[in-house]
Write a protein that binds this DNA or RNA. Structure first.
Lengths: 190, 190
DNA sequence: CCTCCTCTAGAGTGATCGCTCTACTCGATG
DNA sequence: CATCGAGTAGAGCGATCACTCTAGAGGAGG
């Protein structure tokens, strides 16, 4: 085994959360897919499913932030980077049979009214994304307040497009959301 | 009993789907809350949880479409109606302790990769929303293609804002999404 | 009155849920 | 070399899961 048991459990859980959500992911299935003994799960995560879930949310959220911000920074211009985020997300969705969209959206909706600790974990992730995206817009010379609105608008458009895209198995919503975000950026610059 | 057993089961399930999602909603809890005998559930829905889920998705989707389109049509202008949709959604969210957002978004994400019949039910609902909103924009004199993009953009912005709003327990995302949609409408008109 | 059918009623099914428990392996430390 | 804690290993716990089954209530038609 290359990776540690703990990492395998985290990675497997993250992958299952994407497709099956929080309640839809069973711990027995997790340890089975991760080739880990059941006892190890409760050794590494004594808090049980909730602790594991919290770590997965934060971990997946951070990884996705890094990925998206890297793509965002890839374009020659801010506009190009923004467009790349949406077209890149569309490409991944197509390649994974419309399974791999936002790593935490399903879980975020599930736990919003059922688990305060997990809800807080999702808030931390979303806040991190907003701060990172805001910083990117500010660096490009946009005022702080407009930059924050742009960041929130972009993330909301992306998340909403993911919902439509996964359901309809089409990337049309992502293309529309990308154009709409671009329009908002233009308006903030003008 | 005023309403029929079947209706009580449908209403109760719809309410539970909003808060707990599809996998998070147990049939035992449903019949208990609906004051219905367990046997009646399988009498009215011989297809079990999946059939019940499908009916609830379509029913909730249609009801929400009627509600939103009524608010959309309430404003003196198209712009006012659009703004009312987002401010109305924000008001409901605040009043229900950030529980009652989109009635099918959580379920849509859960079933997208797990149940083809239920996924199709969510597609029907989203398509219905898109068609209804497109019609509204077309009626206001916007071209068919631009109207469809506006409809998809508005719904995506609303859904994405719901994700952020429920997680953060704040309506900021809804306000931003509303402004962004308004901007898209202006651009389509100009 | 009897039959038939729709619907109510809930006990009981095997499977799976999250979780606890004890036992064992193994490398580090005295 | 004995000891000890970290991590591996999995059987077994009560509870709950979706679901099936039989039984009876109650109105309609002959």
């Amino acid at each position: 085994m290359e990776t540690s048991t703990k990492d395998r459990i985290l990675d497997t859980t993250a992958a299952m959360f994407r497709r099956y959500g929080y309640t839809g992911t069973g711990l027995k299935q997790v340890v089975q897919r991760a080739n880990a003994p059941f006892g190890s799960l409760y050794h590494h995560f004594p808090g049980g499913k909730e602790e594991l879930g919290g770590e997965v949310i934060r971990r997946s959220g951070k990884m996705y932030e890094d990925l998206v911000m890297a793509i965002f920074a890839s374009g020659a211009t801010l506009e190009e980077g923004l467009a790349n985020v949406f077209s890149g997300a569309a490409a991944v969705l197509r390649e994974t049979d419309y399974a791999d969209a936002c790593p935490i959206a399903t879980v975020a909706l599930e736990v919003a009214s059922t688990s305060e600790p997990l809800r807080k974990a999702t808030v931390e992730v979303f806040d991190g994304w907003i701060v990172a995206a805001t910083l990117r817009f500010v660096t490009a010379g946009i005022s702080e307040t407009k930059a924050r609105d742009l960041a929130i608008g972009m993330i909301a458009a992306l998340e909403g497009a993911f919902v439509l895209a996964r359901a309809t198995r089409s990337t049309e919503a992502l293309e529309v959301a990308g154009k709409m975000s671009l329009l908002a950026l233009e308006a903030a610059r003008g």
